[in-house]
Amino acid sequence: MSLFGGTISKLENSIDYATLKNQTIANNIANVDTANYKAKKVSFKNVLNQQVDHTFQAKRTHPKHVSFDSTSLSKSPFRVVTDQSTSFNHNGNNVDIDKQMTELAENQIYYQALIDRINGKFNSLNTVIKGGR
C-alpha cells in the first residue's frame, strides 16, 4: 500500500518525462544548424504500461510477446530516439525549428500543469497534517 495512493509517484514520473522531453527539444533547437544532426524525441517504451492496471493477466503464447509481469513494467517507460528518416536542410540536418518550438511550448504547459497538480496534492496533505487549519 502506498502512502499517497500512487498519485505522487505517477506525477513524479510525468515530471521526469516532461523534463527529459524539454532537455531533448532544447538540444534539438541548439543543434538546428549543425550539419548531419538528426532530431531526437522522447517516446514511450511501454505505452501499454501507462494504460493497463498492473493486475492485468495475459497469457504469453510466444517468448517474444510483451510480458505483463511487474519486473518488466517497473523499468522507465520512456527513452530518447533519433529520427533518421528525414532531412529538411541541405546539410543533412532534419530539425524543423517551427515544430520544435511548438513542442517546447506544449511541453512547458504540460510541465506547469503537473507542477500545479503536485503542489495541490502537497497543499492538501499540509492542510490534513495541520488539522484543517
Score class of each variant (00 low, 15 high):
34 T>L: 05
68 F>W: 06
63 P>A: 09
84 Q>S: 08
90 H>W: 13
69 D>C: 02
2 S>H: 04
8 I>E: 09
100 Q>Y: 00
26 A>D: 03
3 L>H: 05
56 F>R: 08
16 D>Q: 13
17 Y>V: 02
101 M>Q: 13
28 N>R: 06
10 K>Q: 12
51 Q>E: 14
29 I>W: 00
25 I>G: 00
3 L>R: 01
49 N>I: 05
124 S>I: 09
33 D>Q: 14
37 Y>L: 06
131 G>M: 06
103 E>F: 07
70 S>E: 14
87 S>W: 07
81 V>M: 11
96 D>N: 15
23 Q>F: 00
16 D>S: 13
19 T>Y: 12
37 Y>P: 05
50 Q>G: 12
116 D>L: 03
99 K>P: 02
15 I>M: 15
42 V>Y: 06
53 D>P: 00
27 N>G: 09
15 I>F: 11
49 N>Y: 11
45 K>Q: 09
15 I>T: 08
53 D>I: 00
73 L>N: 03
23 Q>C: 00
47 V>R: 13
93 N>L: 10
72 S>I: 03
97 I>Y: 03
57 Q>I: 09
45 K>L: 12
111 Y>L: 07
88 F>D: 06
105 A>H: 04
124 S>D: 14
16 D>V: 11
19 T>K: 08
17 Y>M: 13
133 R>E: 12
120 G>Y: 04
9 S>T: 11
5 G>S: 10
115 I>N: 06
37 Y>S: 07
89 N>P: 02
82 T>Y: 04
120 G>C: 01
14 S>W: 03
64 K>Y: 03
93 N>M: 05
98 D>R: 12
119 N>C: 04
110 Y>Q: 09
39 A>N: 03
74 S>L: 03
12 E>A: 14
97 I>A: 01
78 F>D: 05
115 I>M: 14
119 N>H: 01
33 D>L: 11
13 N>E: 12
132 G>L: 07
70 S>I: 12
4 F>T: 15
109 I>N: 03
94 N>E: 11
94 N>R: 03
116 D>G: 07
130 K>M: 13
46 N>E: 15
44 F>T: 09
101 M>R: 07
129 I>C: 01
88 F>N: 08
31 N>G: 09
4 F>Q: 06
10 K>L: 15
69 D>W: 02
95 V>N: 07
108 Q>N: 14
39 A>F: 05
4 F>N: 12
110 Y>F: 15
112 Q>S: 11
114 L>A: 01
103 E>M: 10
8 I>K: 01
111 Y>S: 07
62 H>C: 07
53 D>L: 00
12 E>M: 14
25 I>A: 03
20 L>Q: 08
127 T>P: 00
95 V>Y: 01
78 F>M: 02
18 A>G: 04
51 Q>W: 09
79 R>E: 15
18 A>V: 11
30 A>F: 09
3 L>M: 14
116 D>F: 01
66 V>H: 01
82 T>C: 05
62 H>D: 15
31 N>K: 10
126 N>I: 12
117 R>F: 10
63 P>W: 09
14 S>Q: 09
131 G>R: 08
33 D>F: 04
15 I>E: 04
4 F>R: 05
55 T>W: 00
51 Q>P: 01
54 H>E: 13
92 G>P: 02
38 K>M: 13
72 S>W: 01
118 I>V: 15
71 T>Q: 12
95 V>G: 09
76 S>D: 05
